[in-house]
């Protein structure tokens, strides 16, 4: 197995957190998801050179990293907008009006599922159940949940973001 090398480094606190986890996990390969999260938190997405860094850090082939990154919906291979708008489209939110929320977001931002505004401010992703069914419709922006949404509240929320 060829293990790639990388000259990239994360912020010292992040490197220390990874070192700590690699002492506690039974294998270095198992720290791949935590390492990818550290990268995405710092860089905002997962460019190829950083996937190579993750491969070297976890002692796995780059192909494996790409396989993992492409499997999970939350790992971004392209840079999302500063405000990544995730609208739940699953059953409870649909019953409570998710389609109207989506129509509102699409119209306001002028993008469809997977799209990003030209200024890089917003991106839109239609997502599956966020476990907020009792308080739907749910919109998640970056990591923050917004529940019991209406198209009006959604429009106000988007307008309020810098």
């Amino acid at each position: 197995m060829t293990v790639s090398s990388s000259t990239l480094k994360l912020a010292p606190e992040a490197e220390a957190r990874i070192d700590d986890l690699q002492r506690r996990y039974p294998t270095k390969a198992a720290t791949l998801l935590p390492v990818l999260w550290e990268i995405q938190t710092q860089v905002g997405w997962l460019p190829q050179e950083w996937m190579a860094y993750a491969a070297a850090r976890c002692e796995v082939p780059v192909s494996k990293v790409l396989g993992v990154v492409s499997f999970y919906t939350m790992f971004h291979q392209e840079q999302p907008g500063r405000h990544h708008v995730q609208v739940c489209r699953n059953i409870s939110c649909t019953m409570l009006g998710a389609e109207a929320i989506l129509a509102c977001v699409r119209e306001k931002l002028g993008v469809t599922n997977g799209g990003r505004t030209a200024d890089g401010k917003f991106s839109l992703e239609e997502v599956e159940c966020l476990a907020g069914c009792s308080w739907g419709p749910v919109v998640q922006i970056n990591r923050t949940y917004h529940e019991n949404m209406t198209p009006e509240k959604t429009a106000q929320l988007l307008d309020s973001l810098e």
Binding site: L21, A29, A30, L32, L33, V68, F71, Y72, T73
Partner: peptide
Amino acid sequence: IVHRGAGAYICGEETGLISSLEGGRG
């Protein structure tokens, strides 16, 4: 140890969860 998933319903299945914990696809 808190291990954060990354968006995949199938990781709620116990062996899918284990695959994901081991650093793989779920």
